[in-house]
Design a binder for these strands. Structure first.
Lengths: 217, 217
DNA sequence: AATGCGGGGATTGTATACAACAATACAAGA
DNA sequence: TCTTGTATTGTTGTATACAATCCCCGCATT
């Protein structure tokens, strides 16, 4: 379950770091990524760099033009809004399926995450809260027991990590979000698929609305 | 728009061919892909093979374990059902957005595709019909004017190409599907977002039901 | 001045060589 | 017999060398 994962392999180190930089806006859209520059930057040869770039292309984070190289695509504010809307349409499905299939052991793990969130919520640890938010949603994706749905939603959720961080760190969104998580958890405990779906859709809608209000400012 | 795209580069040739084989079930789940074997098979060096494998991993078609190699994941019947269900939740959104944003020129192109389908529908050319089905849906994804939605749905639609082929080649599904396409097209022409969404969801549901009836046999 | 045409430097594409790791088989010792 | 250590082999990870392509710039021609 833990993603100790390919943390070794230089390809993945480069991939993860570039992904992070793109998602966090360090690398702005339009930036062209020449292989040699990245080689120097990461002190690795071209092989892992090229592999990382190919992976990023499949994720839609860079665009590779044959014989010309890679440019950063990044995540625009329109992408952000689109992602929330897409999640509003589909993330309820994850909770619905999870409600039908979740085991007692899985419920325990999820409960633990929610309790940790409640523990942190008044301590202004926006990073921990964001991490736990990620874990909460990722666990539901996993417990939906659908590889494809997990893959799809995980990608979407991951893309907007940086924006969520802003949301949690700036205002009173965290307590509300955590309360909503607790409600969803209760619906899952009751195996009430309809309710879990409904609450999840509302949760996404609220998160979206909150983020929009921040951006307008 | 056309995907003349990276058809050159050996990496993409290998990627496309492996993807095709996985999607078509030529490579069954669990098959382990050793780099040297693929090198011989495609008569290329390890570099493009490795890049292809990394891309396939990001698409969720193979799983790479560090220092151990890649194994085929493939698309199970459960994945198939899941994909249709997910599309039922989200594909309507593409039509909704397309209805709001589609231009006259884009409508012409889409109309052309539907007319071609109607031309072929009684000629038992299931391959052409499948190709045109792909083009119809891909165009709507494109005209939804959302990079993320296009990316998401394009992946899902692509995954089940092989199953759709079976659907079109085996029974009276093609004429019904084409009729549904015509109805969706009309809704788009009228820029009726609600109707376009509703018809699209029904279209996916019908396609799913049809495929299920085939599999049960 | 505008256009067309090399040419050289920079960049990507591909192949290969070497290093690190994993798995297996086999032998030595308890 | 069982265990454990080790050698061997096959596979993946990384670096580098070479080939193909593109791009920019200067130059000549009109």
């Amino acid at each position: 379950m833990e993603k100790l994962y390919n943390t070794n392999s230089l390809s993945f180190q480069v991939f993860n770091e570039l992904e992070r930089q793109i998602i966090n806006g360090v690398l702005t859209p339009g930036t062209s990524l020449t292989e040699n520059r990245l080689c120097e930057q990461f002190s690795v040869s071209r092989t892992p760099v090229r592999e990382a770039l190919r992976m990023l292309e499949q994720k839609g984070l860079v665009q590779i033009t044959p014989n010309k190289g890679a440019v950063v695509l990044g995540i625009s504010e329109k992408d952000l809004t689109d992602i929330y809307t897409i999640r509003m349409y589909v993330e309820g499905l994850a909770s619905r399926w999870a409600a039908q299939k979740i085991t007692d052991e899985q419920l325990e793990r999820l409960t633990e995450v929610v309790e940790l969130q409640e523990f942190y919520q008044n301590r202004a640890c926006s990073e921990q809260i964001n991490d736990l938010d990620t874990r909460f949603h990722e666990l539901i994706y996993e417990y939906s027991d659908s590889r494809t749905l997990q893959h799809t939603l995980s990608n979407l959720h991951h893309m907007i990590q940086h924006y969520r961080q802003r949301s949690f760190s700036s205002d009173g969104r965290a307590p509300k979000a955590i309360k909503e998580h607790r409600d969803i958890l209760n619906a899952l405990i009751a195996h009430d698929a309809d309710l879990a779906e409904k609450l999840t859709v509302e949760h996404i809608a609220n998160a979206h609305a909150n983020l929009l209000s921040l951006i307008v400012k």
